[in-house]
Nucleic acid binder design. Sequence first.
DNA 1: TTCATAGTTCGATGCTAGTCGAAGCATTGA
DNA 2: TCAATGCTTCGACTAGCATCGAACTATGAA
Lengths: 226, 226
Amino acid sequence: MKEGPDIARVAALLGDPARANMLTALMGGKALTATELAQEAGVTPQTASSHLAKLEAGQIVIPRKQGRHRYFTLSGPDIVEALEVMMGIANRVGHNRVRTGPKDPELRRARVCYDHLAGDMGVALFDGLSKRKLIKTDLNGVALTDAGVDFGNGFGIDLAALRQNRRPLCRECLDWSARQSHLAGSFGAALLDRFYDLGWARRMSESRIVRFSVDGEQKFRELVGD
Amino acid sequence: MKEGPDIARVAALLGDPARANMLTALMGGKALTATELAQEAGVTPQTASSHLAKLEAGQIVIPRKQGRHRYFTLSGPDIVEALEVMMGIANRVGHNRVRTGPKDPELRRARVCYDHLAGDMGVALFDGLSKRKLIKTDLNGVALTDAGVDFGNGFGIDLAALRQNRRPLCRECLDWSARQSHLAGSFGAALLDRFYDLGWARRMSESRIVRFSVDGEQKFRELVGD
DNA sequence: TTCATAGTTCGATGCTAGTCGAAGCATTGA
DNA sequence: TCAATGCTTCGACTAGCATCGAACTATGAA
């Protein structure tokens, strides 16, 4: 190939299993150390180090030095978007991982995936909104229905503002614990924010766990029509 | 890696330069034969055949047999989306190709890129809309401004309908001939459709060339504020 | 039938990239 | 100063994969 890489270079960086595992781990939004990423990817620290060097050189991740740790984060929302789209493709064509997800039951139940709700409750949210016909899925993906727009506005979400953003309102994100879809996109993120604001749930510090209050979970169940 | 591939498998398929070239060629929306794709990728037919077999096995492309030709198309809009996102990333981090694009001057000037306008006129459209402040670019990408919404509706585009779709309204797509951005997304596609409807331009059959009428080009120039 | 074209399969080659063990820095804490 | 921890560099091994020449199949045309 005389012509340089371009897409191929980016895709190749995401195309190694170890690196892909690291990047999906980083989708949680939390900065992780090199050692943590090595564990996530299931490789030795040496190997991880070489992968991280490549990802850094390709500007897929950015490192931040703190004491004797190096914390890594994704270099931008476009990386998350790329990972989400490819998860969708992998899901569509049936390339599914054997991996069943985290062991921690709280993590399996409700956690943050980048900026939206994942885990069993994330899946329940997606299914509930579908059943109530507030979102609909077709060949192209997920979209808000008219009823969904009314619902969103009534729930305190400024849909007009969200639409200003390029980011799609709704997107399917494959849940790596439940292996079903949950709701991503700016609307998915806004919903989680409202859950926080309404006091239904709060994010545990230093972790991806989202913990619902008893009252909040009750309200959540009503919302998803349980 | 004990855990299976998932994203990595998809990304790896897009991560080879020859395959990436083929796929970008297919973004034009036109079905291409194996030989044409071999030329696009700059490899021998044998090599192309092996790549196409992989892409087919990974369900990235779908083949259609016709006479003694095999025509390939992308397996879905999500593939286009993935390619677009990765083009955006490659552009952001400065992984640009040396390749300067097609030689045919008509192709360089105005052509279809999947379903929107590319080439010099595509770039002019993007720049013109930016200059008139109908679209704005920020960290997250491109979005319609309020003025842009008014413009779109006035130009005969049903923005409300477009928003029903999950596909982002606006997206930057890196132009491989001009090496600058042109406007993709559902709004970009709708604009090109309007150009057709208004008789400003028409798509040449069996080619990606978009040919503007004299009058149409005049109107187009006014539109982009030249 | 004969020839030309489109495409694939096979086999050989050569290169790249992922992997890890061992050793080397660097930072922190005692 | 010494030890422990986090991370990287070096070197060696291996496997996989892209690549192409050559031969083969299939479709279509003369």
